[in-house]
């Protein structure tokens, strides 16, 4: 640095300022400070700086759809971790004598075919849905954004191959694929289902990630960092990823809802989760044949599923609106 003093002779004495600016700077500084709130330059230097993320957060907090769906999701996560908080019974202790009975005191949702308490099963069923949804989304998002991001950044033959591979995955009808792949698996945990959804879900997120990395890569600030001598890892992690991640978050949040309903679909078809795992899909499947006699058996798990899927999709919508720079 040169002596910072050698241009200060142009400076006019700023009123009560630090005396560290040329006249232009001081004028701009004043006009900046003259604008409380809003516009290009809100607040004075004392105000906490706002990043785009904190702007988005401020928007979200004011959005009632976001608040409602977030509350629903928090509630779901809590009961899937500690179902005993609101359900004292055991979802697997059933009494055939109560089969298909309606609502009775202490059993507000009634009983199912096996005489299990529907309320307890609906509460415990949240765990399977949330686990599958969250794990499958995380897996698909990580795999998709890493592969898609690298393909978008480097381009070339790797990108060409990856694009064709993801085209192939897109071509597989997801329910048919599930029937084929999962019917041969006997493992009764959630992991085969999670693995299958990740396998078929990542190309969608990969495509979004690739596109947004290509968009971010063309920005002048990436060129500027390259011109400074920044390596690929710095370009990707510091400049491209933070600017490309928003669409991936949005798509992943919406996908989470659809993955939950996909789990239920597969379980309904008998190839997803299998008893003794408690799942809304299994319960819906078992209840569907009795819909005329005992509709409560179907309505409660189906209602829980719908509310859950809706909550995640609305959350995704709200996040997209908040992160969309065009609306700012």
């Amino acid at each position: 640095m040169p002596e910072p003093d050698n241009h200060r002779d142009e400076a006019i004495e700023p009123a009560g300022g630090t005396g560290a600016s040329i006249n232009l700077a001081q004028d701009e500084a004043r006009s900046l400070e003259r604008r409380p709130g809003g516009g290009q330059a809100p607040g004075g230097p004392a105000e906490k700086p706002r990043s785009l993320w904190s702007d988005a957060w401020r928007d979200l907090r004011r959005n009632s759809i976001f608040v409602i769906s977030a509350l629903v999701i928090i509630f779901l996560v809590v009961i899937s971790l500690w179902p005993s908080l609101i359900a004292s019974g055991n979802p697997l202790s059933c009494n055939l004598g109560n089969s298909q009975k309606g609502s009775t005191p202490g059993h507000p949702f009634g009983f199912d075919n096996q005489g299990c308490d529907v309320y307890t099963r609906v509460v415990y069923g949240a765990r399977a849905s949330v686990t599958v949804g969250v794990c499958a989304t995380l897996g698909a998002a990580i795999l998709g954004s890493v592969l898609g991001g690298l393909a978008g950044f480097f381009g070339g033959w790797g990108d060409a191959i990856l694009s064709r591979v993801s085209d192939i995955f897109f071509g597989i009808p997801i329910v048919l694929g599930g029937l084929v792949f999962l019917s041969v698996i006997t493992n009764t945990t959630v992991w085969p289902v999670v693995g299958f959804i990740v396998l078929l879900g990542w190309p969608q997120i990969g495509r979004i990630a690739r596109g947004s990395v290509i968009t971010a890569r063309q920005n002048d600030y990436v060129q500027a960092a390259r011109a400074l001598g920044a390596g690929n890892s710095r370009l990707l992690l510091r400049h491209i990823a933070p600017n490309a991640v928003a669409p991936v978050i949005v798509v992943a949040t919406i996908a989470l809802g659809t993955y939950i309903s996909l789990e239920a679909t597969l379980s309904y078809l008998g190839v997803g989760l299998k008893p003794p795992t408690v799942s809304w899909g299994i319960d819906i499947s078992q209840a569907s044949s009795q819909i005329r006699n005992a509709p409560h058996m179907l309505l409660w798990p189906a209602g829980a599923l719908s509310v859950t899927v809706l909550a995640f999709i609305m959350l995704g919508d709200a996040v997209r609106d908040a992160l969309d720079p065009k609306l700012h």
Partner: peptide
Amino acid sequence: DVVGLNPE
């Protein structure tokens, strides 16, 4: 400071 912006 050199480019005429407030260092704060």
